[in-house]
Write a protein that binds this DNA or RNA. Structure first.
Lengths: 243, 243
DNA sequence: TTTTACAAAATTGTTGACGATTTAGACAAC
DNA sequence: GTTGTCTAAATCGTCAACAATTTTGTAAAA
């Protein structure tokens, strides 16, 4: 059940059609927060940036919208998605479900080689954290979860989790606490111990705790400050004119 | 945590942009097998059928390709996806993982009202099966799983499972045994008992058995007959000319 | 009969332009 | 100071035509 070489990273490097190229590029930008929630994405600006036609940009938009990473508003354009609180809760709940199965499978099929892969990744995480490279730390933290999914040997799950991790990235960008308190790498250490311990139940509960930690560290109680949010006050989205 | 009214069905009926309209239409066609694996989808034919421009068709193609329901081959066009055996195995494996979590959640939060919803659906399934309406039976069978996902109260999971069920539909179309032996509605009965029994472990193992049943009833050992498949014989895709 | 070469048809890929809608700014009225 | 109205700019939505590629069909050559 070995998998062929595939673009397993967010930032694909192999030669792929410009279409996919742009999609990957924007994925990367969302992941490390160069694209912030709510940003307007003007088609013509993007054409200049990437040197392709509008049709190409449009195609990339469709893909991103399908993953809920941007919102496509008719006649208004594309905006980087602003996940609601409910959405955020559901995303983390979904991750708990998925990753529960993932860690169980990984625990059950652990080998020395796989353990070493995880250890190597953790080393990179610690290094980034030690050097104060916050951006790299965030990206590596996401890739840790993706690595586990890959070790679960299921491309379907892997791709799905990749999208959820990207959405998580947007959620964290919107709702993170003032003080980062990014101690998740400790959770990851604990996770490694559980994964190699051979007890699926323990590994699963460890992952559940970890995801709850991330979620609880967010400020999922009030809307993003900065703009008076009538949408939440009146319980409707501001997009549609009165019907 | 109530959810707003949303298009929870494959065949959306609310007024939506023609763009989405076509997408939903083709989803429906795949679900009840009017579109068979491998069929060529010519853009201009579709424009006449739906009365829209090629750009629209193209946009719909992108979405479908993103869900792995069609293949987009450069300069050759779009083809209804032909899931490989490995893909089929992974899809069912993924469903086992996801639906494990789903049934556990549904079991834990079962109410009289929810049980009644399931019962009503099962009645419809039995009716279709009794009347020999094979097409309706297949669709309802898929929607049973989707109903459980909806009762799990997580739109993320629900949408993901919807896509997996559609892929399953293609897989079944490719690899089903000569004799349908469509006794899955019995499995669904058993599942209802487990779900209302209050024991999550039992419900989960029941669902796992059900999905294994479906998978094992398929002929996942040899390629689809009918056309000599050089791609599998020589282990390479037929798209590229000799390099 | 089989293979090769070439031309014609069908199909996809790309571009640019035009119309429709929304947004931003200016200015008058209250 | 706020509100309402209008015009101009920016931006998106759509379409049709053209170019590039692939597929099909035909006929000549081995």
């Amino acid at each position: 059940m070995a998998h062929p070489a595939e673009p397993q990273r967010f930032t694909g490097s192999g030669k792929l059609r410009p279409e996919e190229q742009i999609y990957q590029e924007m994925l990367g930008a969302i992941l490390d927060r160069r694209l912030e929630p709510g940003m307007k994405l003007v088609e013509e600006d993007l054409t200049k940036t990437f040197g392709v036609s509008r049709a190409r940009i449009r195609a990339a938009f469709l893909q991103l919208a399908h993953d809920k990473l941007i919102n496509l508003v008719p006649n208004r354009g594309a905006f980087v998605a602003e996940p609601t609180i409910d959405e955020a809760i559901e995303v983390f709940s979904a991750r708990r479900m998925i990753e529960d199965g993932v860690v169980r499978k990984v625990t059950a099929h652990m080998t020395a080689n796989r353990a070493e892969q995880i250890r190597a990744h953790l080393a990179a995480e610690h290094k980034a954290h030690h050097e104060g490279d916050h951006r790299a730390a965030i990206i590596l933290s996401g890739e840790f979860h993706l690595l586990l999914a890959r070790l679960a040997n299921n491309l379907v799950i892997e791709e799905f989790l990749e999208r959820l991790i990207l959405r998580s990235s947007l959620i964290i960008a919107m709702y993170e606490s003032p003080q980062p308190a990014d101690c998740s790498h400790d959770d990851h250490d604990e996770l490694l111990r559980a994964l190699t311990g051979g007890n699926p139940d323990e590994a699963a509960s460890c992952m559940a705790r970890h995801l709850d930690n991330i979620r609880d560290r967010l400020q999922l109680h009030r809307e993003k400050p900065g703009k008076t949010d009538f949408a939440s006050i009146f319980g409707r989205q501001p997009s549609s004119k009165a019907s």
